[in-house]
Design a protein around this nucleic acid. Structure first.
Lengths: 233, 233
DNA sequence: TGACATTTTAAGTAGCTACATATTACCGTT
DNA sequence: AACGGTAATATGTAGCTACTTAAAATGTCA
């Protein structure tokens, strides 16, 4: 049985992380050069490079050619959010998923929608309103605009059967995605749709996607009162 | 002038990404093995490995030893959020930062707070309420609990001068951070503090941090009506 | 002293080899 | 057909070398 004396780059990463956590290096402090750390830990520079890359990715350190590596002077809390397909989200929570198409209509994009896509000239779009259900109770209301120039095939999809959410995610990968979170008060229509009271505070998630610069879809999803969005890790 | 015919791993990554975006490979489909892609693109397997690692990180593909690489069958929207120190956030938006300590008191953690930390036995904590200002107007209200066992030094910090937010981020790195987003209606107190109307929908961000399993702090931040949280890019 | 060019440095990238490890695939036995 | 052990295989990790590149440090000259 050979005991591996090789170091994984994750070990090296954690070693450096701990050095920082311990207070040995504070915000703005410069760390030794990769080669020296490699020397000290008796591993290759490439291993340290990989470890440092990761620490840089999570925002803990800042690396610059010639400048060396230093602990990030303005630490940020960096979090990763996973937003799944709504059907999967409901089913993962143990609910039975349901879906209702409220309306669908071809029309020209409003100024608000154009703004979300950073466009100025008018574009023809498919506007969709739909309600996602969990165990026959309202779960999420979605107000979606799909760009017909970019995704003409959406016209051939029966949105009474399959949700635009799922069809798009499965068939139209994106290269850019902007997210926006804020709170709104339920108006008359929302409260009816979601079974909430008028004035209830609701979390709104707005998402816009592009493929190579061309707009795909922008959607506002509103969830029932009390809904919480959590980080993945 | 020598033109570099070397491929950057990012180029390889984007190449593969485009193959997926183009529809050549759909959700669940298996991609060629790294070695073959390397062959085809005339680069080293390690370059493909790096590219694939990245695609795996963003959740686009799934990789398994021997199983090969396949396009993620349940695509998720993966977003990265950066939450900066509040002072930096205000200053970046061009506001003049201000800060008021509302109250600070040593007390035992409530059940809610213990639950946030996944604890059961009582812990003594420092409870802090503070208001962050932008150009002398309310910007963010924070309701914080700091674990005195883990961070006894907080007692020596003059929280009337320096915000706990900033002191903690700069002096107490964490190894785990949970985030939670939801919407609430402004009550009497919140509306007074934030200059909002009672019932206004507000975005609440809850954040709890640990260091090697020991709780550091949990904080609820409430921002003024209309506040939006955006993804970094 | 200040502006500008040159050198030096430390990280970034790429390629190669070698070996580790987790699964899948296969085959023989019962 | 069910089971179990073995081989095959694709990705993961580590180390090495070589070269590239951005930027800091230094030196030079007006």
């Amino acid at each position: 049985m050979k005991i591996t004396n090789r170091l994984s780059w994750k070990y090296v990463r954690d070693e450096i992380h701990h050095e920082i956590l311990s207070g040995r290096y504070g915000p703005g402090d410069r760390l030794p050069r990769d080669a020296d750390i490699a020397d000290q830990l008796n591993c290759a520079r490439s291993t340290v490079q990989r470890a440092m890359q990761d620490l840089s990715d999570i925002g803990l350190v800042e690396r610059r050619r010639k400048g060396g590596t230093r602990v990030h002077p303005e630490p940020v809390t960096r979090a990763t959010l996973d937003i799944p397909i709504t059907r999967h989200e409901v089913e993962k929570k143990g609910g039975r998923y349901g879906y209702q198409l409220i309306m669908q209509e071809e029309m020209s994009a409003t100024r608000t929608v154009l703004a979300a896509f950073e466009l100025t000239s008018p574009v023809s779009m498919l506007r969709i309103e739909a309600l996602h259900l969990s165990d026959n109770r309202p779960y999420m209301l979605e107000d979606r605009w799909v760009c017909l120039d970019t995704v003409p095939e959406i016209r051939d999809v029966d949105l009474k059967i399959q949700s635009a959410n799922e069809w798009l995610v499965l068939n139209r990968p994106y290269s850019r995605c902007d997210l926006r979170f804020y709170a709104i008060s339920a108006d008359q229509k929302m409260s009816e749709m979601l079974g909430a009271k008028i004035g209830d505070a609701l979390l709104l998630i707005e998402r816009s996607t592009w493929i190579d610069g061309a707009p795909i879809t922008t959607v506002k999803t509103i969830t029932t009162p009390g809904y919480q969005l959590l980080t993945s890790s």
